[in-house]
């Protein structure tokens, strides 16, 4: 790839980041083994969902695919943008290599386990 192409790609990526998007509502629950994240992304087919872990941030993005009949005019819209995006900063003790994702009927479930060394352990207190 030459210089020109790569700047174009970078520009396209930046444009995508700047496009207006909705924030999907999420639940984040932490237990001793890791973090579970649920996100509501209704209307997003599996192939339009993108999950990215990069430099300690998790990006969830999805494009809404509406099956709209020809010539339809919207009369009332509570969902007014065709995409969702949400970014989270991850903490160091999470093992991003072992993220497990399930996506079913617009509901995303992400499981991010904690790295082995970060799991809680009992510390013995020695009396001397």
């Amino acid at each position: 790839m030459n210089m020109n192409e790569s700047t174009q790609v970078a520009k396209a990526a930046e444009a995508a980041r700047n496009e207006a998007a909705m924030l999907p509502p999420v639940d984040v629950i932490e237990d001793t083994g890791g973090i579970t994240l649920y996100a509501d992304l209704p209307g997003v087919p599996k192939d339009k969902l993108s999950l990215q872990v990069e430099a300690g941030t998790l990006t969830i993005e999805g494009e809404v695919a509406l099956d709209v009949p020809q010539g339809m005019e919207a009369t009332h819209a509570e969902v007014s943008l065709p995409r969702y995006r949400r970014v989270f900063t991850l903490s160091k003790e999470l093992d991003t290599q072992k993220v497990n994702a399930e996506f079913n009927q617009g509901l995303l479930k992400l499981r991010i386990p904690k790295a082995e060394h970060a799991k809680p352990r009992r510390i013995e207190v020695k009396l001397t």
């Binding site: 209704p42 709209v68 020809q70 339809m72 005019e73 919207a74 009332h76 819209a77 509570e78 969902v79």
Partner: peptide, 13 residues
């Protein structure tokens, strides 16, 4: 749930 409503001359969606 959030709801969108639209219409065409032959249907309401």
């Amino acid at each position: 749930p959030a709801i969108n409503v639209g219409g065409t001359p032959s249907s309401v969606d």
